[in-house]
């Protein structure tokens, strides 16, 4: 039996209404990482190390250790997300910490270098880290801005319903196009036969499909000079175009929401490899 304490806890849980990962617990992780950055920046200027700041001083080693621990922990988000274990963890809290601590790495990592950058494996690790962070910033921006557009565009339809909607229009077009003349029929058939889901990366990201045969088919039925059958096909083609646009916008938003992960994650793996090389070489040549 559940005790009343459990009930109160459940109530508390329900009380937290929708709250974004960015404002999780009143920006707890933003505060923590700002504090961390301030400490690192002030201590960088207060601590006087000989001959100058670089990764090899005791101060540099401290920052490096913090950095490496952070990087490993940040990359574990990928495991946390997929490993649905029991316990009171919240992926939103993890994401929140991931974002703000990840941003703090800009300061920690850069201060660790002491601004000694060059063409070597050490700078490669730093550059990969920055690449991961920059793609991550893009991710935060799209996560914060795009879902609203995604939701507006969906108009309560699921992906499957959109595709089914297109198929239904296509069946009607096929039936309505029977009485058309050879030339008109060919244009319609070309539009129907085109695989609308085969699109290049650029088309997907921009939502612009210059080779769309449906648009071409619409042009083949200019208003004013149409008989009854052509009129019907023309209306249906316009509906097809609007359904296609919705699907394409959906694909575009999804692509924009996901594209950065294709750099963020491989770059993270490369970063960990470079980091390993960096650490091994530092100790080897000590």
């Amino acid at each position: 039996m559940a005790s009343s304490a459990d009930f109160e806890q459940a109530e508390k849980r329900r009380d937290t209404d929708h709250e974004s990962f960015l404002s999780h617990k009143r920006m707890r992780w933003l505060k923590i990482s700002v504090a961390l950055c301030l400490i690192v920046i002030t201590s960088y200027f207060l601590v006087d190390v000989e001959p100058r700041h670089n990764g090899g001083t005791w101060y540099g080693y401290t920052l490096g250790t913090i950095g490496v621990i952070l990087i490993i922990w940040l990359s574990l988000l990928g495991i946390r997300k997929r490993n649905i274990t029991e316990g009171k963890w919240s992926l939103k809290a993890w994401t929140s910490a991931h974002v703000y601590l990840g941003l703090a790495l800009v300061v920690i990592g850069t201060m660790h270098t002491g601004f000694q950058l060059g063409w070597n494996v050490h700078t490669l690790a730093w550059a990969l880290m920055m690449l991961v962070i920059v793609t991550g910033i893009y991710g935060v921006v799209v996560y914060a801005t795009l879902p609203r557009s995604l939701s507006i565009n969906m108009r309560e339809m699921t992906r499957a319903q959109m595709v089914e909607g297109l198929a239904a229009i296509d069946r009607q077009i096929a039936a309505a196009a029977q009485p058309l003349g050879r030339k008109e029929a060919d244009v319609v058939i070309a539009a129907l036969e085109q695989d609308v889901f085969r699109a290049g990366l650029l088309a997907r990201l921009t939502g612009k499909y210059p080779r769309c045969k449906t648009k071409r088919a619409i042009k083949a039925f200019p208003a004013g000079s149409l008989n009854k059958a052509e009129e019907k096909v023309s209306t249906l083609l316009a509906r097809r175009n609007s359904q296609l646009s919705q699907i394409r916008r959906h694909m575009r938003y999804k692509a924009l929401l996901e594209i950065w992960l294709f750099i963020h994650i491989p770059a993270t793996i490369a970063l960990i490899a470079a980091l390993a090389a960096h650490i091994v070489s530092v100790f080897y040549y000590w």
């Binding site: 929708h18 709250e19 990962f21 919240s90 939103k92």
Partner: peptide, 9 residues
Amino acid sequence: RACPTGAAI
């Protein structure tokens, strides 16, 4: 618990 952005409650 598994929602990364806080959308699900």
